[in-house]
Write a protein that binds this DNA or RNA. Sequence first.
DNA 1: TATTTTTCGTACTTCAAGTTCGATTATCAT
DNA 2: ATGATAATCGAACTTGAAGTACGAAAAATA
Lengths: 208, 208
Amino acid sequence: MGTRKKAALEQFNRDNILEAAKELFELKGVEATTMDDIAKHADYSKSTIYVYFKSKEDIYNSIVEDYMSILTGEIETCIDAETGFEDSYYRLCECLVNFEEKYPKYYSSLMGEEKMTNSRKRTDIINQDVGRELRDLISSLLEKGVKHNVLRKDIELQPTVLYVWSAISGIIQVADRKRDILKKKVNMDRDEYLKYSFRTFYESLVRR
Amino acid sequence: MGTRKKAALEQFNRDNILEAAKELFELKGVEATTMDDIAKHADYSKSTIYVYFKSKEDIYNSIVEDYMSILTGEIETCIDAETGFEDSYYRLCECLVNFEEKYPKYYSSLMGEEKMTNSRKRTDIINQDVGRELRDLISSLLEKGVKHNVLRKDIELQPTVLYVWSAISGIIQVADRKRDILKKKVNMDRDEYLKYSFRTFYESLVRR
DNA sequence: TATTTTTCGTACTTCAAGTTCGATTATCAT
DNA sequence: ATGATAATCGAACTTGAAGTACGAAAAATA
């Protein structure tokens, strides 16, 4: 078999397995899904699974990487749009919110939490490859703000990239986890709260 | 034995076990610590451990609750101090930073992340008991701001409690996890970055 | 058809959580 | 002190899942 076809076939198998795993993770949760489950559902023998992935964590990480590039793509279209700073900012927020709604299971992994295991070995892919793209995107968002002269003059670009990222993702996380409290104590639904928070946060960035 | 003495003894045993578990969790990580390890190190038989705690997760959660009340206490002294809004705000930030430095292993659990397991059953204790205290403390911080007329007039108290909490904890989390990037790309050490972020964020709250 | 590669199936190993239960030891009430 | 009650021990056991081993079967290739 040509190496070309062979590689494609390998990719096909990997994708099948990942697809099956995604479905099960979604359905029963990551912990509750066993390698036997995945094998059965993907229609491979367990041995074959272990040919393509060296561990369950390996599978999980591959899925996270997939989602990471999807998210990066979506953010790119938000920020690259031909609009001003304010509009792009809100689009970015919206994009992250939508993503968190669609893939709550993966959101925290993507936002830089530990991977599956509690081991301290942090995979560098997110921090260095795809993460890089993200930082560049936010950086170009901020540059819009500079160009249109709406950013506060004392804003420094590089640290603000991380600052914006961390605050927005923190806000979304809490909005998800404290739904009850939002409802009961704050008397707001999640969307209202998010809108309010993003708007308030916006004020920390722009001239008034 | 009087029920009084008996209860005290039970507490004593529980505390011993928790103490041993804390040490091992610190030393080798939570996942890597087995129940046998804990039993041996605490000098009880495994059966006895299971008399006092129904699972490893139970132990972990108890430890988290301990730290939660420690943290709440520390925040209380920060905010109750006889100082103005700005000062209390920075004290709160500092307090959280210190805590994250001292107990990085527990920080994310305290901040509302999932517990040990990936199960969706969220323990309500944090959300309803101790979490309540925290929200009250931040609420009283904000009231200081209102009283001294430094808060923006369009700030609504209740949602802002969560807003402040989520942004601050997000900032600290990222500052910890992206140390490398801070150093290499932003050219700032963690403390500088935190100072910068807290100051910038402060601007989203106050009149200018 | 012969050879090599991939997949399969089954049984195995390992490891840790949690259980069982009879034996042992400590506590207490009389 | 002694017999009853309760707490602890220890050691073997069960369960469940990750990951491995390996020969048999099937598929692709030459």
